[in-house]
Simulated assay, not measured.
Amino acid sequence: MSRADVVESARPVSPLWTFGLLRNELTTTFRRWRTLALLAVLAGVPVLVGIAVKIETGDGSSPGGGGGGGGPAFISQITNNGLFLVFTALAATLPFFLPMAIGVVAGDAIAGEANAGTLRYLLVSPAGRTRLLLTKYATVVLFCLAATLVVAVSALTVGALLFPLGDLTTISGTHISFAEGLGRALLIALVVAASLIGVAALGLFVSTLTNSGIAAMATTVGLLITVQILDQIPQLHALQPYFFSHYWLSFADLMREPVYWDDLAKNLGLQALYAAVFGSAAWARFTTKDITA
């Protein structure tokens, strides 16, 4: 038994101290230049999308030049209602930018402390391994929410500045009020944030496997890219429903009338499963790991 484990078992930890630890982790995470840079990139994506759509439709044409090309499903509606830029920006950032940012923060959670030589000092304090791991995961989950809201708020601001706002037409063709549209936009942002908790747990597990923050971040991001490539290979259709990214874009069903809940429920259930499996693996690894840094 290590000295840190002796301290953990001998000294009770008050809830106030736990909240203090979480507050300290949040402050440290959101003050890092790397974190601020990630949030700035995320905030910039809706700006670029909004400006691109505005320039392309300046002559009265529809986005994509009427060619029926690809792109987020809501992009053709942006010129009619700026609120659709929120849905488009979330659809554009969810496959890569958002999970990449989460992977960087989660991958650095434990490995970064070990690399900096501060992990042992954190464990000597009355945190304990389990409490510290839970605090790290809570910090990453709150970053998921913050990153998603940054995209949504940036998109809403740009959409309001460049395009008209008003009542919305859903994917089903029905009309809802602007207030209800805002409510659905908030709900979609929450669903997108919840869609990233599996990635957060995966990144945290990888972070417990190494003492190199860069290696943990690179591995997590590499796994994200690999899974999404595999999710596009038709021959793997039997496995794809179990990939954490498979149902990510199901949030579009919240813009139907009535709402289709099947894929949304599958997505949230899958994320909970990944969080439980990789969270447990991270706990098993971290609580038995020999801390030397």
Rank of each mutant, 00 (worst) to 15 (best):
4 A>M: 01
4 A>V: 03
6 V>C: 00
7 V>M: 13
9 S>I: 09
12 P>N: 06
13 V>F: 04
16 L>I: 03
16 L>M: 05
16 L>F: 11
17 W>T: 02
18 T>R: 07
21 L>G: 02
21 L>A: 06
28 T>I: 11
30 F>Q: 01
31 R>D: 14
32 R>S: 07
36 L>Y: 13
39 L>M: 14
41 V>W: 10
46 P>H: 13
46 P>F: 14
46 P>N: 11
47 V>H: 03
49 V>Q: 11
52 A>C: 04
52 A>Y: 06
70 G>C: 07
72 P>S: 11
73 A>W: 06
80 N>T: 09
81 N>L: 07
82 G>N: 08
86 V>P: 10
87 F>M: 12
88 T>Y: 11
94 L>E: 15
100 M>E: 00
108 D>P: 00
115 N>V: 00
118 T>V: 05
120 R>A: 13
120 R>V: 03
121 Y>A: 08
131 R>D: 04
131 R>E: 06
132 L>Q: 03
132 L>G: 04
135 T>V: 11
135 T>G: 15
138 A>L: 12
139 T>K: 04
139 T>Q: 10
141 V>P: 00
145 L>G: 07
147 A>H: 08
154 S>R: 08
157 T>E: 11
157 T>G: 15
159 G>W: 06
160 A>F: 11
161 L>K: 06
162 L>Y: 11
162 L>I: 08
163 F>G: 05
165 L>W: 13
166 G>F: 14
167 D>Y: 02
169 T>K: 09
172 S>H: 13
177 S>L: 09
180 E>H: 08
181 G>M: 11
185 A>T: 01
186 L>P: 01
188 I>T: 15
190 L>H: 09
190 L>S: 04
192 V>P: 02
202 L>E: 12
205 F>Y: 15
207 S>K: 13
210 T>A: 05
215 A>L: 15
224 L>K: 01
225 I>C: 00
229 I>E: 09
229 I>P: 02
230 L>Y: 06
230 L>P: 04
231 D>Q: 03
232 Q>Y: 13
238 A>T: 02
243 F>S: 00
243 F>E: 00
248 W>P: 01
250 S>D: 04
256 R>D: 13
257 E>N: 12
261 W>N: 04
262 D>C: 03
264 L>P: 10
264 L>Y: 14
265 A>H: 09
267 N>V: 05
275 A>Y: 12
275 A>P: 01
277 V>K: 06
282 A>M: 14
288 T>L: 15
292 T>N: 14
293 A>H: 10
